[in-house]
């Protein structure tokens, strides 16, 4: 799995945010994307996942432009999470995580898809004890963890995360970044994670993208990493 950016330019409401980004990512990379508020981190992730059009340039997955994949195919290639709160009261945690399997449901027609991944990621994120609780009975942090488990249960080779550590306490943040690094390396995924937890994420990322003045500077060491 190779994710390639070729001269891409990204705009938000016709204001240029990112100028001519060209780079290539292969599996095993856990990219930490940093940058000031409003710099364009979210817009970049949304563009990648197909929620926004690319103003210029091309993005390729395995040498095929992303526009060549149809919508259901893309759901099997890329998963996405933002920090928007889910406002639903009477859904159980485990049912929320199950929603991540929807793309497979479509592929395999109406059959109900149970996957060991649902349980595995709930276990990994410490959700097993609250899996039967309703969303109005858990905290914002727990809800965010459930949403992360949902994203991972989608089991795509590319995972795009927009501030997944929002609402999480310090140990949970650490657990999350550790899990993501492990997933990228051991399960051969490409994970791009926009975050403001620079120092903590710095210890676990394999590549660091910093967005400033419309340019993404790429390095394999974060400042926090070298300081340690």
């Amino acid at each position: 799995m190779v994710l390639k950016f070729e001269n891409i330019t990204i705009e938000r409401k016709s204001v240029e945010l990112i100028q001519t980004l060209s780079t290539e990512l292969s599996t095993g990379q856990f990219v930490i994307l940093t940058g000031a508020n409003g710099a364009g981190k979210s817009t970049l992730l949304k563009t990648l996942v197909g929620l926004k059009p690319i103003s210029n340039g091309q993005i390729f997955i395995n040498a095929k432009p992303i526009s060549a994949y149809d919508h259901p195919q893309r759901a099997l290639l890329m998963s996405f999470i933002n920090s928007k709160k889910i406002e639903e009261d009477y859904i159980r945690v485990v049912d929320l995580v199950r929603l991540g399997r929807y793309p497979y449901l479509k592929v395999m027609s109406e059959q109900k898809i149970e996957s060991p991944l649902i349980d595995a990621y709930m276990e990994a994120l410490g959700l097993k004890t609250i899996q039967e609780k309703f969303l109005n009975e858990i905290s914002d942090g727990e809800l965010q963890k459930a949403n992360i488990a949902r994203t991972l249960a989608q089991d795509t080779p590319i995972v795009l995360m927009d501030e997944p550590s929002a609402f999480l306490d310090y140990p949970s943040k650490k657990l999350l970044f550790k899990l993501l690094r492990q997933l990228a390396i051991e399960s051969n995924k490409i994970i791009i994670c926009a975050t403001h937890d620079v120092e903590l994420a710095g210890k676990f990322g394999t590549q660091f993208w910093h967005l400033e003045n419309k340019v993404i500077s790429i390095s394999d060491k974060s400042i926090a990493w070298t300081a340690n």
């Binding site: 949304k46 996942v49 893309r74 996405f80 999470i81 929807y102």
Partner: peptide
């Protein structure tokens, strides 16, 4: 519609039109 409880953006990335 049940996927759209995750928000329109996330639902789209799960393959919902």
């Amino acid at each position: 519609l049940s996927i759209m409880i995750l928000g329109q953006d996330v639902a789209y990335t799960l393959g919902v039109k």
